[in-house]
Design a protein around this nucleic acid. Structure first.
Length: 466
RNA sequence: GUCCCCAUCGUCUAGUGGCCAAGGACACCGCCCUUUCACGGCGGCGACGGGGGUUCGACUCCCCCUGGGGACGCCA
């Protein structure tokens, strides 16, 4: 049997972390077994589904590199198929008309809950034989006696008594089909071999198996992934910070970092932490997927992101940094030949691209903005000789690189009998405005002769006019 | 409330009855490197929820308790 997996989000919001991991595992499994990965948009709820959400989900998937082989299929465009299957169920005697209104149902459910009774449908229309004219009705599934037992490749065998399952509505009174029914019809007709989803769907799986049976479909393999929780161990939600995949992109994360993180949240391969995409495909197996829910750790994601930034080449990083610089007001610098060198000075110390842009800002400002304390401490009259010497020497320096710059400093230190620490820090302040930057020689090289000279001049002028 | 799932360091996890006085990673704390900040290196802190079994032997198997999570819609 060929492997066919699917990711079936409902377009009622962005692609979130949990959905992304489900998509990732489904994608990995399909890739690993040379199967197909199908994307299906579950938009049967016309009220809540939006095109923007669909777009956002597609964008998120693309950014993560999770390409689908088939689709996207839209449930809203498959009503003909659902209709035919509903007819089959009707003739098989599996459905009955329910004339209860939403209001009545909600009220009864509440009442049951208060009394401590199971808040499920009481089945009052089950045996109804009349057919009132002009009264809207929904079609409910007649749950048979017995129990559902299914094997989950992650959790093992799961058994649920049919008594626990209510007669669910498959066709609304407006004649649109509902989720549990559509999923079954779609997974069956799309020949999905492995249904991979969050374990919050386990109770749905029992309902769906009943429908599979009623329709005579073959039952697929189920894999219910454990939930992803927030730091407080409750289901991950907005309260826990960013949950949208695209928000991570906006914060300067690399897709590979997020993929690697998500893969290791719930799955493992011995002690290995770093995985290339190809390794993930090669090594992925449900045998190594954990059964317990896991807490999402932004710190570890950050660590992985820093790792992948360090691993990236300057030329791949440079263009990725542009939008983050633009956000800080630095625009039209595509042609700045210094960009890659600048990236090389920063990538050892940035955890995100956003942070890197922030640290790179001083390279692009037309004039330095000194921080108050460093300015007072380091831009002093006593340091004037250092600045004037460097200005004179660097101005005529050729080639202008780390080695030649270091040589100038060595000579300066000898001449003035100063240690590097006494020289580097004042220069750093003069050039960057602050006390934190990459190595001073690297910084000077990356900044470029022109800007270095003008900033030394600015410092000299400032001191002399004080 | 009912049903389902789950339970190793703060967190992600390795561990599939003896290899475990429980290993790795993130975080945290030291030290080293060092022109600042980082990176890096070295070291430290730190866990099998409790109780019963089974067994020559349980982190590993079974049961109970406790604790957590999830599901109970004409949402998906």
């Amino acid at each position: 049997m060929s492997v066919r997996t699917r990711f079936a989000p409902s377009p009622t919001g962005y692609l979130h972390i949990g959905g992304a991991r489900t998509a990732l595992f489904s994608w990995l499994y399909a890739r690993k077994h040379n199967g197909k990965f199908v994307l299906r948009i579950e938009d049967t709820d016309a009220e809540r589904s939006t095109d923007e959400s669909t777009r956002a989900i597609l964008d998120g998937m693309e950014w993560l590199g999770l390409k689908h082989d088939e689709g996207p299929f839209y449930q809203s465009k498959r009503s003909g198929i659902y209709k035919a299957e509903i007819e089959k169920l009707i003739s098989g005697g599996h459905l009955y008309r329910c004339y209860c209104t939403t209001e009545e149902l909600t009220a009864r459910r509440e009442a049951a809950r208060i009394k401590g009774l199971p808040p499920k449908y009481d089945g009052r229309c089950r045996t109804r034989t009349d057919a009132p004219e002009g009264v809207p009705y929904a079609l409910r599934f007649r749950v048979p006696e017995g129990s559902v037992i299914f094997k989950d490749i992650i959790k093992g065998s799961i058994k649920i008594q049919n008594l626990e399952i209510e007669d669910m509505i498959l066709l609304r009174s407006d004649e649109t089909p509902t989720y549990n029914f559509c999923v079954v019809v779609d997974d069956a007709t799309m020949n999905i071999s492995h249904v991979i989803r969050g374990d919050d769907h386990i109770s749905n799986t029992a309902k769906q198996i009943l429908i599979y049976n009623a329709l005579g479909y073959e039952i697929p393999v189920f894999a219910h992934l454990p939930m992803i929780l927030g730091a407080d161990k409750t289901r991950l939600s907005k309260r826990h910070g960013a949950t949208s995949v695209i928000a991570y992109k906006a914060q300067g994360f690399l897709p590979h970092a997020l993929v690697n993180y998500l893969a290791r949240l719930g799955w493992s391969h011995g002690d290995q932490e770093i995985f290339s995409i190809d390794e993930l495909i090669e090594l992925f197996s449900f045998d190594n997927v954990g059964v317990a829910a896991g807490v999402f750790s932004p710190e570890k994601l950050l660590w992985l992101n820093a790792h992948y930034i360090k691993e990236s080449t300057d030329s791949t990083l440079a263009p990725l940094l542009l939008p983050f610089l633009a956000e800080l007001g630095v625009k039209d610098i595509k042609a700045d030949h210094r960009l890659e060198v600048i990236v090389s000075t920063l990538k050892e110390r940035a955890k995100t691209l956003k942070e890197m842009a922030q640290s790179a800002l001083f390279y692009f400002l037309s004039s330095v903005e000194y921080e108050e304390k460093p300015e007072k401490k380091f831009l002093t009259e006593e340091k004037l000789p250092v600045f004037t010497y460097l200005k004179a020497e660097l101005e005529k320096l050729e080639p202008f690189n780390v080695e030649s710059i270091e040589a100038i400093f060595t000579a300066l230190m000898e001449k003035l009998d100063l240690k590097l620490g006494k020289v580097a820090q004042p220069v750093r302040v003069a050039l960057t405005g602050g006390t934190v930057s990459p190595g001073i020689f690297e910084t000077i090289e990356a900044m470029g002769k022109e800007m270095v000279i003008s900033r030394l001049n600015a410092a000299i002028t400032l001191i002399e006019n004080r």
